[in-house]
Design a protein around this nucleic acid. Sequence first.
DNA 1: CGCAGATTTGAATGCAATCAACACTGGTGG
DNA 2: CCACCAGTGTTGATTGCATTCAAATCTGCG
Lengths: 265, 265
Amino acid sequence: MPGKPHTAGPGCRADHLPLLRYLWSIAHIANDDIDRLCALPLRVRDFGINRDVLREGDRSTEICFVIDGLLSRYKLIAGGRRQNVALHFAGEILDLQSLYLDDPLDDAFGTLTPCRVAFVSHDVVRALIGAAPTIAALFMRRVFVEAAINREWIATVGRRTGYERIAHLLCEALVRMRAVGLVNSDVFELPLTQSELGESTGLSTVHVNRTYQQLRRAGLINTRGKVHSVSDWEGLKRAADFNPAYFHLREAGPFEASSEPGFQA
Amino acid sequence: MPGKPHTAGPGCRADHLPLLRYLWSIAHIANDDIDRLCALPLRVRDFGINRDVLREGDRSTEICFVIDGLLSRYKLIAGGRRQNVALHFAGEILDLQSLYLDDPLDDAFGTLTPCRVAFVSHDVVRALIGAAPTIAALFMRRVFVEAAINREWIATVGRRTGYERIAHLLCEALVRMRAVGLVNSDVFELPLTQSELGESTGLSTVHVNRTYQQLRRAGLINTRGKVHSVSDWEGLKRAADFNPAYFHLREAGPFEASSEPGFQA
DNA sequence: CGCAGATTTGAATGCAATCAACACTGGTGG
DNA sequence: CCACCAGTGTTGATTGCATTCAAATCTGCG
């Protein structure tokens, strides 16, 4: 992926960093736990764009997290229709469920960009959370935050208009990316095509396109390719009926300095 | 609630039964754990119809499960629109997240019928899962099954037609109710109004009504009031594009005998 | 009986999907 | 360097599913 060369051995800290950053965005982490997480042995694998990291029906013996890139969790239903049920940015753990559910996966994880993914064996993770209850709690928090996001998505696709849905997705992407240091100002790159945006919001590609035009005309956003800039954050939030409480971020609020000495690149 | 008088003291086992039944539907439970669960001290409370058991913004010091009745977890969004994000049948634990997320709840739980709900203090639950890791694992399984259902709902409201959505909800209700002994044959009472059905599927009341008529005309279901009977289960499943795998039931399959000596009423 | 809630029906509207082109973009290979 | 190509973005026209508004039954219940 861009920039970071993968170096095994002691220099592997760069691969752990996104995970730390993500967990840090939802909770405080004690120094001991940071060390423990950094000591986690990783199997690292790169994926091209539009590849499945985990397939429906898979049974994992490892859990994994995103080192770099953007993934979607998705379901395919009759007629070739596809619905993304979650987006996963750098640092997010993908399938904690496999630790507790022996069953085959009922959905799939696919890359939306080229991705680097870290794998950690179940045994190692079990040992870790056995030894460090605070890390177990951290993971649990991750699980419930993810569930909260799922529920917000149900409300979005169930009850919001197309205009609101797109606005809401943009708000969500900005806040989540910002929380892990992927955004510095109100400009960010969202590497989703309009088609993928549709698959995430339950809209057709054409309608996504027209909705984008509306949002631009309303003076809420500007786009140049995949680069988005929010020209009216308050307006966008209002249009989306957006309230970031459901992210359960440690420090709430979208535009705060998330500067934490420990995890700067 | 119908029938069961509430008797404190040793006779309280009737209140624990639904929880056992539910957990049993998703996993085997060792005898020791059954004893431990039965020993759980419950605070029992009855709620009328259309009451909130937990409100948005609440911070619990207890977790709770449904003894009897039907609840929905729901979100209110701008303009008074409502979306149910989950249905909770007897035995289901409602807010395990409160054990791990100190934050205020970002959605609410409301009764769809009169309900009896059991409350157990966090401390007691923490002690329980600390002492019995198998019960902790059981609860974790519950958490991930719930998340899987959430994701299926996203796909349903995002990509399925109205006809498919209603059919899917009926399939889901039947399988879930059957798993906890609420259905014996293919006849079951689903105490949702058409309006509530709409709030659960992202459709308007009127369209729910018309869709029901279609399903009846197609010979898939019959209804008399709230009582539903499935006249063509295979057809209904096909219409819904339904695959029960996402429930991760211990014994898969919708129409199997779930007879388990331990938990008969 | 009378009332409130729920279901059903009708008519009109509208949001979003679909179908079909066309334009733009970046990357590839000749 | 340019032609080509696939993927993406954009536009137009049409269709249709679902909403909305309104009113008429139907149902259970005090």
